[in-house]
């Protein structure tokens, strides 16, 4: 008899949750060590890092359950639009921080 509990699929949710917890714990600490708490880039990398995980996971979740819908041209175009939108706001925020740092500051 096939032992169902050993099916790798049963463990996927636990592995995913474990990975999210691991990232949530270590990622901010790693960023702090690597950049320092005051770095102008640290919040950006944190938000897009954690947000990117949430974004990717939801896309994977949706399209593993709705594989057929990607065959519809309109659904596929919406998926591309979502990814491009993510990259666009990622770029705009990055540029914003870069300009903020580079532009001369008033120094009393």
């Amino acid at each position: 008899m096939k032992v169902k509990i050993l099916n790798i699929k049963n463990f996927i949710p636990f592995i995913v949750i474990g990975c999210i917890l691991w990232i949530s714990y270590f990622y901010p600490r790693f960023l702090t060590l690597a950049l320092g708490e005051k770095s102008p880039w640290i919040s950006y990398l944190y938000i897009y890092g954690m947000g990117g995980v949430a974004f990717l996971l939801s896309l994977v979740w949706i399209f593993t359950r709705k594989k057929d819908s990607l065959r519809q041209k309109e659904e596929f175009l919406w998926l591309i639009a979502l990814i491009l939108g993510f990259l666009f706001i990622f770029f705009v925020h990055g540029l914003w921080i870069y300009i903020s740092i580079e532009y001369p500051l008033y120094n009393p």
């Binding site: 938000i47 947000g51 990117g52 949430a54 974004f55 939801s58 896309l59 949706i62 709705k66 819908s69 659904e75 919406w78 979502l82 939108g85 993510f86 706001i89 925020h93």
Partner: peptide
């Protein structure tokens, strides 16, 4: 400006 992360769930679900 931080809504984008949950948009896939909104649009497709």
């Amino acid at each position: 400006m931080n809504e984008w992360f949950i948009v896939p769930l909104f649009f497709f679900a």
